[in-house]
């Protein structure tokens, strides 16, 4: 893991480790969902249409 050498905030050891752990968990979730849909495909269940791409210009976080 390479950190930017000139960090001006202390990211905190615990905070770094936990975010990596959470990211791994979240990644597992994505992988599980992906494999679940391929299992469903094996049994002839059609996948849902792709979710809309996150569009920069139409995105309005403060709606």
């Amino acid at each position: 893991m390479h950190f930017a050498p000139q960090l001006y905030l202390d990211p905190g050891s615990g905070s770094i480790l936990i975010q990596i752990a959470i990211a791994v968990l979240l990644g597992l979730g994505v992988a599980l969902r992906a494999s679940w849909s391929s299992i469903k495909k094996l049994f002839g269940v059609k996948p849902k249409p792709e979710e809309e791409e996150d569009n920069d210009d139409s995105e309005n976080v403060q709606s």
Binding site: M1, F3, L17, I20, A23, G27
Partner: peptide, 18 residues
């Protein structure tokens, strides 16, 4: 934390997930 010892890194995809 010693990053090399732990051999951990975070992909961009994982960061976006976070």
């Amino acid at each position: 934390i010693n990053p090399r010892e732990r051999r951990m890194s975070m992909s961009k995809q994982a960061l976006i997930g976070l």
